[in-house]
């Protein structure tokens, strides 16, 4: 099952995409999770529902709207063009943006659950010890929520690796730029190149299993995935 250069390029591109997206999601997702965990605002349910949408929506819906919104007539497309960035569909940057939306709930929810699970008490104690809000967040909340962060990072990464529908809709299948692993497997299956499809697909199954096994073994999933105890 020799992989072609295009296959390897797809593997590398997928890892690059998933790493970058995971990093961005941790940066973007943490404040959202913190806010959702602690706010009493009436907007909480609205924002929570918006964040969770990609879990429910078929990727084709998300991909379809991204294609329209990022296109030349869409608001995002017009914005990126007026900033001199060009348009996002068919680019690696476009995949990154799409994947951040697509994998957002998988990162926000575990972190949010971890923040909620630790309750008010540790933060109040820290406050009596004159820790500033920032210090309370960095030295108390973050370490306590560590399992949530591990789960979030692993799920965000794995979910981006497994992404298919959105990439298919906005990627344009360009080797080295938007031709990721899942799309490449699809191409092989469609072209009846089953040996090559097996090479990549079996690799992905093994990879996903190892990732989930590591997740459960590390125990990070205990509070947030409902398995183990």
């Amino acid at each position: 099952m020799a992989l072609t250069p295009d296959d390897w390029s797809a593997v590398w591109l997928t890892l690059k995409l998933a790493s970058l997206v995971t990093l961005l999601l941790l940066i973007v997702g943490t404040p959202i999770a913190w806010w959702l965990a602690r706010t009493r605002s009436r907007l909480r349910n609205v924002i929570g529902a918006v964040v969770a949408l990609p879990i429910v929506l078929p990727p084709t819906v998300l991909g379809f709207y991204l294609l329209i919104v990022m296109g030349p007539q869409g608001p995002v497309g017009q914005l990126t063009e007026s900033l001199g960035l060009g348009r996002l569909p068919f680019t690696f940057a476009g995949l990154v943006v799409a994947s951040v939306f697509y994998s957002l709930p998988f990162v926000v929810q575990p972190i949010q659950n971890a923040f909620m699970a630790m309750g008010e008490r540790p933060l109040e104690v820290a406050a009596t010890l004159r820790a500033s809000p920032w210090e309370r967040f960095v030295h108390v909340a973050l370490p306590l929520a560590r399992p949530g962060f591990i789960t979030a990072a692993v799920l965000g990464f794995a979910h981006t690796v497994g992404e298919f529908g959105v990439v298919l809709m906005i990627g344009g299948n360009i080797p080295g730029k938007t031709q990721v692993l899942s799309v490449q497997i699809y191409n092989h299956v469609e072209a009846i190149e089953y040996a090559q499809a097996h090479g990549l697909a079996a690799g992905l199954v093994a990879f996903s299993f190892v990732v989930l096994l590591a997740l459960y073994t590390l125990g990070g999933a205990r509070n947030t995935l409902g398995t183990g105890q």
């Binding site: 294609l67 329209i68 990022m70 296109g71 030349p72 007539q73 348009r87 569909p89 068919f90 906005i170 344009g172």
Partner: peptide, 9 residues
Amino acid sequence: QQFVVSGNA
């Protein structure tokens, strides 16, 4: 065709 109709190509 969809790429073209949506204006992205």
